[in-house]
Each structure stands twice: as C-alpha cells, then as structure tokens.
C-alpha cells in the first residue's frame, strides 16, 4: 500500500517533471526539414543544452535533493545528465507523434556525425523504453532514481544519496505492483533499463573521446 506521504512524493515529482519540459520553440525547430550539416549540429547542441537546464530545474524540485551537500548536487547532476537525457529522448521518441515527425527526428540524429556502432545501441534503447509503455509518474520516478545514483564520481556523502534513492525505489516498486498487477516482473524490467543506460553512458564517453582525438 502506498502511504499518504508517498502519494505526496509522487505528486511533487510528477508535477516537477511535467512542468519542466524542453521549450516548444526549441522542439519546433527540430521538426523543420531543411537544414545543413552545420545547422543540424548547432541545433542538436542547443537541444542538449536545453535538456540539461530542464534536468536541473526538475532535479531542484525533487524533495530532499537541495538538502544534499552542494558539491554532491553538482556531482550527481554531472554524473547523470547523459543518462537522464537518453531517458527523456527515449520517452519523446516513443510518444505517438503526427506521422513523419519520428522520421525527421531520427534523420537528424543519424546525420549528427556520431558513429553507427553507437547509434545502434542507442536506437535499441529507445525502442526498449517504448515497449515498456511507462506511465508519466513511472518515467518521472525512474529519472529521479537515475539522478540519485550514489556511486557517481566525486560524490562524498554516499549514504545520504543512497537513503534518498532507496526512498524513491520503494515508491516506484509499490507503484509498479499497483499499476501492473498482471506483470510481476515490471519493476525488475524498469531497473534493467538503468543497467542499459549505464552501458549507453559508457559508449557515450568512448565516442566523445574518439571525437576529441580525431
């Protein structure tokens, strides 16, 4: 059973998640079909920057986050930004969109200059998130859990972060049981996506390193 406090926690996180989305003028630009390679790169950079800003605004509203050590807050955001962005992008791409939109977005990503060996696991991840048909509150909580991962580099108060993450895991577990009574493995499947995210993060670091050396 979900307690009253847990309900309030879910509501606070969900409200923050819904309130902080990438601005529409940015997403609109993504759907324009004519663009050069340079414009594409600049726009994807703008979107990524916007995603980080949105992520920070969302995170500030996660109950308990601002009570963590200031430098730990930065370490957590720095360590999770890429994973949170993959998660948010996966959710955007798995939404039902007017016909042709998904293709335009995919085309942009494919023309971004990243290597095929990175793109394949990324699109596979997007697909596997889409197959889960997560509700908005589950998405918000899974993102929260990703952000509150205690073993990111430079996190000092490991235990304080872990306590906060445990609170969120407990809520998500209960929510999964309630919302997916026919799928006892649903919570485990969600956690499995976090492992996939870690792998993508690892590929991403490798890709950036190869970009820099080239």
């Amino acid at each position: 059973e979900i307690t009253k406090e847990q309900r309030a926690l879910i509501k606070a996180i969900l409200d923050a998640y819904n309130r902080h989305q990438i601005p529409q003028d940015v997403t609109k630009k993504l759907l324009q079909e004519q663009y050069s390679a340079e414009e594409n790169f600049l726009l994807l950079t703008e979107v990524a920057t916007s995603q980080v800003q949105v992520l920070v605004e969302f995170t500030k509203n996660i109950p308990g986050f601002l009570s963590l050590d200031r430098e730990d807050q930065i370490a957590l955001l720095k360590g999770s930004a890429v994973e949170a962005m993959f998660l948010r992008s996966a959710q955007v791409l798995s939404k039902k969109m007017p016909s042709g939109y998904t293709e335009v977005l995919e085309e942009r990503i494919r023309k971004s200059g990243m290597s095929e060996e990175f793109m394949t696991p990324m699109f596979n991840f997007y697909k596997s998130i889409g197959e889960l048909h997560m509700t908005q509150d589950e998405q918000a909580l899974l993102t929260t859990i990703t952000i509150l991962t205690p073993d990111r580099p430079y996190v000092k108060s490991h235990e304080a972060v872990e306590r906060l993450q445990e609170t969120m895991l407990d809520v998500l577990r209960k929510l999964c049981v309630l919302q997916h009574p026919q799928e006892p493995q649903y919570f485990a499947r969600l956690l499995g996506r976090l492992t996939e995210l870690r792998t993508l993060h690892h590929y991403h670091v490798e890709m950036l390193t190869s970009w820099k050396t080239n």
């Binding site: 995603q51 980080v52 800003q53 920070v56 930065i74 930004a81 890429v82 991403h204 670091v205």
Partner: peptide, 21 residues
C-alpha cells in the same frame, strides 16, 4: 554536454537560477 567543463558550467548556472546570461 559530454564536455565535462561545459556540462558543469551549465549545471552550476542552472542550479543558481541564472538561465539567461
């Protein structure tokens, strides 16, 4: 944003609430 310095700068700025400068 994979560039750690750029990423950290965006995060610090956003944490302090300064979006537009």
């Amino acid at each position: 944003p994979g560039n750690s310095i750029g990423l950290e700068a965006i995060i610090r700025k956003a944490l302090m609430g300064k979006y537009d400068d």
